[in-house]
Design a protein around this nucleic acid. Structure first.
Length: 502
RNA sequence: GCCGCCAUAGCUCAGCUGGUUAGAGCGCUAGAUUGUGGAUCUAGAGGUCCCCCGUUCGAUCCGGGGUGGCGGUACCA
């Protein structure tokens, strides 16, 4: 290695996908698609790039896009950005084609989205989302339907009932609670945001951490200090009580189980707040829909769900995996949220004179894939790759003859390839093995003299090769895992071997 | 963004108070086996010891500053 060789290095926060990854992802996507289609959603696809202002991501008081999005300027100086979710582009699409779309408009879409921010475990700068949205109705039935569909979809993906939960909350209720502790009004918007962010951290920091964030502030392990919301003690316990954790941290996430008890608590928590009461009413209707459809064991009302502070306006949902998996260092890993959504009545309205009610749900495909791999879900592990039949080249002078074998197999519809390297037989078999080939075709001078080809069953061969100790066993091996046929029977013999391992 | 830890072969890491040819295991590529995947043995390829400056006769090692990676935290549509 000398001068300036380029560094072969993937940018951080991005991933390469192997053949196995792609096969597994495609199976996942097919399952999700089936589920969404069954609920009557139709596909639509928008490009990776949008005008930055359509995404609404300019920095305040500047003509430059937000740093969280990958952006560049067109030749007319217009700012363009890579999409950072699938919802904002959908809002643009619906607004642009409003007149010709059926309303309510039900659609799904899948694709990669990009975020230009610090990657972490399970957080990438490019990742795949799979969304379904209903636009043009404010019916709670639309929200409930999405939650039920989310549950069905997770089960279709091989996640058993009980290993996941769809949590639901309502932003209006949260706002009502704020109002009841004196944080209503425009002037308290900043503090409300701080309180919501604190609640959002409940599952990670626990009630004590959140208590500090609601009050004076919290110092983390590295010594960094986060300023708190500065609420007084009674307001702090009122908020904590609302989220389901009592003073001493009794209770735990997702264990309450009873949406009914949660709702009763809500009514108390929002007090006289008009907005809050509306939210509670919505949730009651929601709960009835869920119970009538018999989903109450999978879809729970949970006051700690916050999400999407900027644009969700009513119900918010989150799909959580509840199981843990031992990590490489032995410490248990919990995957947590693998999807979410909610009602965003204001988004389409950014492009039109009137507001258009809308609600949607999004699955984080990349993260879900990692989780499914960890539990060895058949949907991803069963997607084993299957390589082509490999025709070995034992005599470079006869390469045209070998190529002819390959052509025969291909015209019979069997994936096949000629070994194109320059190594010996040993290495060629290793190659075939690595490719995941089931079968190799071999013709050396001996076979050629007789007008025959040897067909090698690589699956059987692997078993026998591993067990074989002495030379005598090779005879046995050959008869079972490898046999010769006349050249004219090549295709039939290969078919027979492939048929063994279907 | 803020705080902390780390940086030697593709991977995991050794490298004696600073001493001239920088190592191991695994992996990779081959050979032993006219012509059979494992195992074994042998050989080979692969390094600006992250970068720059400084201290020193001499720096992979010591000091300063960068850069990159990891973890935590903040933000997160």
């Amino acid at each position: 290695m000398s001068e300036q060789k380029k560094r072969a290095k993937l940018p951080r926060g991005f991933v390469d996908l192997s053949a196995a990854d792609i096969a597994a992802t495609e199976k996942m996507l097919a399952a999700i698609k089936d589920s969404y289609a069954l609920y009557g959603f139709e596909p639509v696809e928008t490009p990776l790039v949008e005008y930055t202002d359509a995404l609404g991501k300019f920095l305040p008081d500047q003509d430059r896009p937000n740093e969280g999005v990958f952006s560049f300027q067109d030749d007319d100086e217009q700012w363009l950005s890579l999409r950072y979710d699938l919802t904002a582009p959908l809002a643009r699409y619906v607004a642009e084609h409003f007149d010709r779309l059926p309303k309510p408009y039900r659609s799904y879409r899948v694709g990669n989205v990009f975020r230009n921010e610090k990657p972490g475990p399970g957080r990438y700068r490019q990742f795949m989302q799979f969304d379904a949205d209903t636009i043009g109705t404010s019916s709670v039935a639309a929200d409930a339907e999405l939650c039920m569909m989310a549950a069905d979809t997770l089960e279709r993906l091989g996640i058993e009932r009980g290993k996941y939960v769809i949590k639901v909350n309502n932003r209006k209720v949260l706002d009502g609670v704020m109002e009841s502790i004196g944080l209503g009004g425009e002037e308290n918007a900043g503090r409300r945001l701080t309180v919501l962010r604190a609640i959002d951290k409940l599952d990670r920091l626990g009630p004590e951490g959140v208590r500090l964030l609601l009050g004076p502030g919290r110092k983390d392990e590295s010594g960094d200090f986060t300023k708190g919301a500065g609420l007084d003690a009674s307001a702090v316990s009122r908020v904590l009580n609302f989220t389901g954790w009592k003073d001493a941290g009794t209770g735990a996430p997702g264990t309450s189980g009873s949406s009914e008890a949660t709702l009763a608590n809500f009514e108390d928590a929002v007090g006289q707040s008009q907005f809050g009461r509306e939210g509670v009413e919505d949730l009651k209707v929601f709960r009835n829909l869920i119970e009538t459809a018999n989903y109450q064991d999978r879809i729970l009302i949970d006051p700690s769900v916050v999400r999407g502070l900027e644009y969700y306006t009513g119900p918010v949902f989150e799909a959580d995996l509840t199981f843990e998996v031992p990590g490489e260092d032995g410490k248990p890993i919990r995957f947590g949220s693998i999807g979410g959504g909610g009602r965003y009545d204001g988004l389409v309205g950014r492009f039109r004179s009137e507001d258009v009610p809308a609600t949607g749900f999004s699955i984080g495909v990349s993260r879900l894939y990692a989780a499914l791999k960890a539990i060895n879900s058949p949907i991803v592990t069963g997607a084993a790759r299957r390589g082509p039949v490999v025709v070995l080249v034992l005599d470079q002078a006869e390469i045209a003859r070998y190529q002819n074998f390959v052509a025969q197999l291909r015209s019979a519809g069997i994936a096949a390839e000629l070994y194109l390297g320059s190594s010996g037989m040993n290495a060629q078999l290793k190659y075939a093995d690595k490719r995941g080939a089931l079968c190799a075709v071999i013709q050396g001078s001996n076979e050629r003299a007789e007008g025959k080809v040897a067909i090698r069953d690589l699956v059987l061969g692997a078993e026998l090769a591993a067990a074989t100790k002495d030379r005598a066993d090779y005879i046995e091996l050959r008869t079972r895992a490898q046999f010769s046929v006349p050249e004219s029977e090549l295709v039939a013999a290969v078919r027979e071997v492939l048929g063994r391992h279907r």
